[in-house]
Nucleic acid binder design. Structure first.
Lengths: 115, 115
DNA sequence: GACGTATTCAACCATTACGTTATCAACTCA
DNA sequence: TGAGTTGATAACGTAATGGTTGAATACGTC
């Protein structure tokens, strides 16, 4: 079965090398050799990571002589953000709870019995 | 090498069954059999998915007789949201660009030559 | 054309992921 | 105690992942 877009995006992101590459690309375009420089692995391995990122739509690649400049494409990240949206309340809620608690403390009502 | 937390979280999320389970748990606690019901796979398979989610800290499990109620834990999701933060500008920026473009269109300046 | 640089591809290997079935363990209740 | 239910574990097959090395391709330059 062909996996859904979100699964493809998330599994592309579930690798620290690939996230590192994206972080580097967030500062501007770069070619394969530049992207590979920080990593202790072969160029071929980095090339494979780039292929994964490209197939997930997280990067696009241009062509400049024998260089293949890579560019960040944020679309799939926005999709992840959209998916997260439905869960955001879970941690925002508990933050609110904490705020309420702290406010009560400050009022000298540590058991939060009001409400 | 033991993988970093964020990688563990993202690869746990990179499976539609597991995301489906989280979506179900967003509506309240449920036991394993209930969680397995929508899926065309063995209970053992679902049990494995739950183990992955638990090890990623995305769910916790209680104990009630022979039932093992599962509960959503949003902490790791908040971490993902935090990671996304550094990239948010990429799609918010391009949305701004679009807004500028549309505004120019409305003013009868389709080539956006002002600026 | 030959050389150097950048990048990909092919073949291979080890490990992990995801499903199966069969078995085991814990608990409830008649 | 014994049966039924819930859930986890073990052993297994198969496919995917992430790395390697070595050869191939594409381009610019001497």
């Amino acid at each position: 079965m062909t996996p859904d877009r979100l699964s493809v995006t998330l599994s592309a992101l579930a690798d620290p090398t690939r996230r590192g590459i994206l972080a580097r690309l967030a500062t501007g375009e770069a070619n394969v050799k530049e992207l590979a420089e920080p990593y202790d692995m072969s160029l071929a391995a980095v090339s494979k990571h780039l292929k994964v990122l490209e197939q997930a739509g997280l990067i696009s690649r241009g062509k400049d002589a024998q260089f293949r400049p890579c560019k960040l494409e944020a679309g799939p990240l926005r999709d992840v953000d959209g998916w997260l949206e439905s869960y955001r309340r879970f941690w925002e809620e508990s933050l609110d709870q904490l705020e309420v608690y702290l406010a009560e403390l400050q009022k000298g009502d540590p058991d939060g019995s009001r409400n």
